[in-house]
Design a protein around this nucleic acid. Structure first.
Lengths: 254, 254
DNA sequence: TTTAATAGTGTAAAAATTACACTAAGATTT
DNA sequence: AAATCTTAGTGTAATTTTTACACTATTAAA
C-alpha cells in the first residue's frame, strides 16, 4: 500500500535475522522492467574483481520499524522516492536460502554469518521508469526488462519471479496498472501495459470498448504532445469514482 | 501448498523471534468455521483464573525448518493431520504487535520477553471440519463460525481477518473450494460453499449451468446416502483434467 | 506535398449471464 | 399405504459481454 510516512533518519539497531527485499517494477510505455543494483566483490588484497552481478534492493529492518516502513525506506534509499505503491507478496525463509559460494563470501566480507538464516519479507513496488533518477546516491542501478533478468544474487531470482506472478494475479483483479503510468496516459499505453505484463495480445477496439464501460477512467480535454503522429487523447484514473462504483467482483471462475 | 513432508520429531532450537500462525478454516456443509484454541491463564499463587480467551494456533519455528514446514507442523500438532492445503498469505511484524496487558502477561508467564518483537508468518489451511478430531492431544479446541469470531488473543483477530480476505480472493480465481469438501460432494454443497465464503446468494440453475461447463467437475455414478430427501448426485474434482484444460484466466477487470 | 506512424471507430455472431417456477425422488410421518 | 416433507434437478427467453475483423483521421517529419 502507499506509504505516506516521512522518511526519518533512523538511529536504531538493525535486526540481523530479518530483512525486506523490494522488487521495483517500472513501465516505460514499452516493457515491464525491474530495477537491479550492481554487486561487485573485490579481493581485499589483490584488488582483483572476484565477481560482478546484480541484486534486488533490500536491507535489514530496524528494531523499531514496521515491515511496510522498512520496505518504503529501502525504496527511498535507492530512488529518493516516497509514497510509491508497495505490496507485500511473500516471505522467504528456507534455512538454506543462501548457499552459493559467491553469496556466502559476500556475506562474510560484509560482517555477516553466512550460516545464519535470514528471513526476508518480499515486497514489490510499481512506478513509471522515468520517475527514477538512476544516479541517486551514486549506486549503480539499472532498469532491466523482466524477460531478460538472469543470474541474480542470493535467491533473488526466485523472489523476482514470485513477485512477477503476484503482480500478474493482482493486475487481473485490481486497478494497479495506473501505478505504473504517469497521472495522464493514453489508452494505447494502458493497453500495452496489460499486454506486456499479462503476456497476451489484445484487440484495440475490444480493449477500448471494455474500458469505455469503466466510468472511473476519465477522458481529459487534453492530448499527447511531441509525438510524430496523431496525438492520442489523455485519460486519468479517478480512484474515488472507482471506489464508489466498484461492484465487488464476485463471479468466480472454477 | 500441500505438504507431503513426513512429520519428524524435531530436536533443534526454536527461533524465538520468528513464528508461524495458522488460520485453520473448516467447512461443515453449512458454515465456514475457524479452529480456535482455548487460552487460560491462572494465577500461579491463588490458582484463580485470570483470563480465558481464544487464539489461533501457531508456534515458533525451528532453526533448521522451512516456513512451510513449520506451518505444516503446527497444523499437525493441533489436528494430527498431514498433507492439508496450506497457503502463506501475509507476514505480520509491527513492533507493537503485542501490546495488550493480557498478552504481555501471558508471554512473560511463558518465559518470553513481551517487549521483543516477534514476526509471524501467516498461513491459512483448508479442510472439511469432520476431518478433525477435537480431542487430539487433549488441547481444548473448537470450531467457531467465522461470523462469530471475536476478541482473539494477541493480534490474532487481525491475522484471522486478513486470512479471510485472502481466502475470498483466492476462491474467486482458483479451484481451492474442493479443499474444504470431502472427495465426493454434491453440487448444492459446492454452491453453499461459494455462497457462505463469498457472502452472496447464487441462483441454483445458473450455478449448475456454469459448473456444467467445467469438465473437470465430474459427475459420479453415485448418490448421497442417509438423507431424508431425494439424494443428490455426487461429483468429484479432477485436478489433472483441470490442469490440462485451464485456459489461463486473462480477462482482466479494471 | 508526400510519407510515416499511430489514433480512433462499428458491426454482426457467439457466448455468457440473468431472472424465473415447476416436477422428481426419497425418507418420514400419519 | 398414503400423505407430507425436503431437497434435487431441469429450460427458456432477454440481456450483456465477448470476439473477430479493416478502414479513415490526424499529426510531425521528410
Amino acid at each position: 500500500m502507499n506509504s505516506s510516512i516521512e522518511q526519518k533518519t533512523r538511529v536504531g539497531v538493525l535486526n540481523d535475522y530479518l530483512s525486506v527485499d523490494c522488487v521495483i517494477f517500472g513501465f516505460d510505455f514499452n516493457q515491464l522492467n525491474v530495477l537491479l543494483v550492481d554487486r561487485v566483490m573485490v579481493d581485499e588484497l589483490t584488488g582483483k574483481e572476484l565477481f560482478n552481478d546484480l541484486t534486488l534492493t533490500g536491507n535489514h529492518i530496524y528494531e523499531d520499524e514496521d515491515l511496510d516502513e522498512a520496505a518504503a525506506r529501502v525504496l527511498f534509499d535507492l530512488t529518493g522516492l516516497q509514497d510509491i505503491y508497495l505490496e507485500q507478496f511473500k516471505t522467504f525463509g528456507a534455512p538454506d536460502r543462501i548457499k552459493r559460494e559467491n553469496d556466502r563470501a559476500w556475506l562474510a566480507a560484509n560482517g555477516r554469518d553466512p550460516d545464519k538464516r535470514i528471513v526476508t519479507v518480499g515486497y514489490y513496488s510499481l512506478l513509471a521508469t522515468d520517475k527514477v533518477t538512476l544516479e541517486w546516491k551514486g549506486r549503480n542501478v539499472r532498469w532491466t526488462p523482466v524477460a531478460g533478468v538472469r543470474d541474480l544474487a542470493f535467491d533473488h531470482m526466485d523472489i523476482f519471479q514470485e513477485a512477477l506472478v503476484a503482480l500478474r494475479k493482482k493486475l487481473l483483479r485490481e486497478p494497479i496498472g495506473f501505478e505504473l503510468l504517469p497521472e495522464k496516459f493514453t489508452l494505447s499505453q494502458l493497453q500495452r501495459l496489460y499486454e506486456v505484463i499479462l503476456g497476451v495480445e489484445l484487440d484495440k477496439r475490444n480493449f477500448r470498448k471494455k474500458v469505455a464501460r469503466m466510468k472511473y477512467l476519465v477522458p481529459l480535454d487534453e492530448k499527447q504532445k511531441g509525438v510524430a503522429h496523431k496525438p492520442a487523447r489523455l485519460y486519468n484514473f479517478d480512484r474515488d469514482l472507482y471506489e464508489l462504483n466498484r461492484k465487488e467482483l464476485l463471479d468466480f471462475a472454477i
